[in-house]
Every structure is written in structure tokens, then in C-alpha cells.
């Protein structure tokens, strides 16, 4: 445990925190623009060139807004809940290798904060623990809509965690490791080696469950405006509300990295494109896909959500695991 390692880790943590907080803000801008273009609108146009400074304006608004805590709320829990969402989203990034190794001034940098050998499970577990943010927020708010949002959090996240785990199980069986770096190295041989060709069902299930776990639109029942005002976030304002959204966008990027590392070849070189740029392209495509579906597909009802999870996705995932096992045995 030498000093260089500690310093490098701290620098990596700061970089990840800074970049992904900024990306979360920029993500809102991209989301608004993409949604607007798909709906024949222009999106934010007034602040700065093409509305680029809208992020800044929103940030100033969030920081200076009154931090309001309702009278009947359970104060400490109410205050800590958004922090849980943001913190778990960033902790989950600790075990994700973002880029290939590179060398600065003779010092080899591994762009992963902590390479533990159960990295994949760790990421999924911490993302699963992120459900405490909305859950506690809803239960502490003393608001009927909030508690409905919290109940939906509990059932939705809990159900789809099962699907995520089972869908990742089949690739884990093929690779034989839980470390994301091993996953990446397994797919080093170019596009034909990508796991998505061997496990297409697992990939689709993982993406669908990812939508539910990051609370994105076809499944964003936690804060479905038409049904439960703003769900768990009804009583929140200012930066506490903002932290929920930083967490949500950070989770989207985490999921993008996970999907590209497990199924889409990770940070291996893609033809002539260097690996670092290749993985960024994959992550941004998945991010764009999130926005694309938001513009295209309708919400589902809560009962349809549960039906989809337990009667369609989970049996499919189990069958997929069984078939993978049988194929691997012979």
C-alpha cells in the first residue's frame, strides 16, 4: 500500500466524481435537445449559443432555490435520502474499468478505482442498494403521492434486480469470471467476439431491466407525473431534488458502461478506432437509446410492469441460463 497508489486512487475518485457530475448536467441538456428534435421542437435556445448554457442556468437555479422541508416529514431521513441516491450511483462506478490502461510519464494508470474480483456483482449490488434513495425519500416525506412512489420503488427495483442478476448470469457462465476486466479481455478479438452475438436474449433482458433500474421512461413509474404527481420527489426542491437527478443520470452512464463492457466488446479497439473512443461511442449510443425510447414508447401500467417482469422476463432469463448451461456442458 504505497503512497503513489493512494494518491492515484484519490485523483481517480475526484476525476470520476467531477466528470460524471458534469456529465449528468450535460446529460439533461442532451436529453432535452434530443427529445425536442424528435418531437419537431427546438428545445432550449435562449441561454447561450443554442441554449448550451441552460445547464449552468439550471444549476444556479437549483443551488439558489429554497431548500424546503415539510413540517410533518422525518427530517434526518428526508435530508439524507437524495445523498444516498447520488452516493450509490458514484460508488457503483468504483468497480467499472472505464478505459484501457495508459501511461503518463512512466506511470501506468489503470482507469478503475478498485479492481475487486467480484466487480460485476459489486456494481449490481450497489446499484440495487440505490433503491434506498427513493424509498426513504418517499417514506419520510409525509405525502400520499410520495409513499405511493416509495411503494413502487420497492416493487419495481426489487423485481427487476432479479432479472438483471439472472440475465448477467449466462455471460458470467461463459466468461467464467465476475471481474469486468476479464469480460473485456474475453471479447478482445473484434466484433465477432462480442458476447451480444452469443447471448442476444441476455442482452435484451439486461437492457430492459436496466430501464427499470435506472427509472427511465417506459418504466419510470416512481415519478409518473400522470399518476403520482412526482412520486418520491414530490416534496423535494432545490439541490436535494437535483441530487436525485445527478444520481439518475450517473446510473444511466453506469449502465451504459456495464452493457458495453459485458456485451458490446468493452474498451477493445474497434477496427481502426482506439478502445477509449470505442467505449465512449458505445456508452453514448446506449445513452441516446435511453432518450430515443423516451421519445417513442408509452408508459406501462404498474400491473403490466410486474406482469412483464415475473411472467415474461424472468422465465426467459432462467431458460436462457439453462440453455447456456446445457450448451456449455457438451
Amino acid at each position: 500500500m504505497d503512497a503513489a497508489f493512494v494518491i492515484a486512487t484519490i485523483i481517480k475518485i475526484l476525476i470520476v466524481l467531477g466528470i460524471f457530475s458534469a456529465l449528468a448536467g450535460f446529460g439533461t441538456y442532451v436529453e432535452r435537445k434530443v427529445l425536442a428534435f424528435m418531437q419537431r421542437r427546438l428545445g432550449p435556445m435562449h441561454v447561450g449559443p443554442y441554449g448550451l448554457l441552460q445547464v449552468l442556468a439550471d444549476g444556479i437555479k437549483l443551488f439558489t432555490k429554497e431548500d424546503f422541508i415539510p413540517q410533518g416529514a422525518v427530517r434526518p431521513i428526508f435530508m439524507i435520502a437524495p445523498v444516498i441516491t447520488a452516493a450509490t450511483a458514484f460508488i457503483a462506478m468504483a468497480a467499472i474499468p472505464m478505459f484501457p490502461e495508459f501511461t503518463i510519464g512512466g506511470y501506468t494508470v489503470k482507469p478503475i478505482i478498485s479492481d475487486i474480483n467480484v466487480g460485476l456483482l459489486f456494481v449490481l449490488g450497489v446499484m440495487g442498494a440505490g433503491l434506498y434513495g427513493p424509498l426513504l425519500a418517499g417514506m419520510a416525506s409525509q405525502n400520499k403521492w410520495s409513499i405511493l412512489g416509495a411503494a413502487r420503488t420497492a416493487i419495481q427495483f426489487l423485481s427487476y434486480e432479479v432479472v438483471t442478476g439472472l440475465s448477467v448470469l449466462a455471460p458470467v457462465m461463459i466468461v467464467g469470471s465476475l471481474s469486468l476486466i476479464d469480460f473485456n479481455n474475453y471479447q478482445a478479438g473484434g466484433v465477432s467476439d462480442w458476447l451480444v452475438w452469443k447471448q442476444p436474449i441476455a442482452f435484451i433482458l439486461f437492457l430492459i431491466a436496466g430501464f427499470a433500474e435506472t427509472n427511465r421512461t417506459p418504466f419510470d413509474l416512481l415519478e409518473h407525473e400522470a399518476e403520482v404527481i412526482s412520486g418520491y420527489a414530490t416534496e423535494y426542491s432545490g439541490m436535494r431534488w437535483g441530487m436525485f437527478f445527478i444520481g439518475e443520470y450517473a446510473n444511466m452512464f453506469t449502465l451504459g458502461f456495464l452493457a458495453s463492457l459485458i456485451f458490446l466488446g468493452g474498451f477493445n479497439d474497434l477496427w481502426f478506432i482506439p478502445g477509449a473512443i470505442a467505449i465512449l461511442m458505445k456508452v453514448f449510443f446506449i445513452f441516446f437509446f435511453f432518450l430515443w425510447t423516451r421519445a417513442s414508447w408509452p408508459h406501462v401500467r404498474p400491473d403490466q410492469l410486474m406482469w412483464l417482469c415475473w411472467k415474461v422476463l424472468m422465465p426467459l432469463a432462467v431458460i436462457n441460463v439453462v440453455i447456456t448451461g446445457i450448451v456449455m456442458m457438451f
Binding site: 428534435f37 424528435m38 419537431r40 430515443w292
Partner: peptide, 16 residues
């Protein structure tokens, strides 16, 4: 549905 929205985006037919 996805195709329609994507085509709308690429066509850039803005009515704002």
C-alpha cells in the same frame, strides 16, 4: 415507433 422518431430527428423538420 423508434423509426418514426429517429426519422423525425434526422429530417429536422422543426415547427417551433
Amino acid at each position: 415507433g423508434l423509426k418514426i422518431t429517429l426519422m423525425e430527428m434526422l429530417r429536422f423538420n422543426i415547427h417551433t
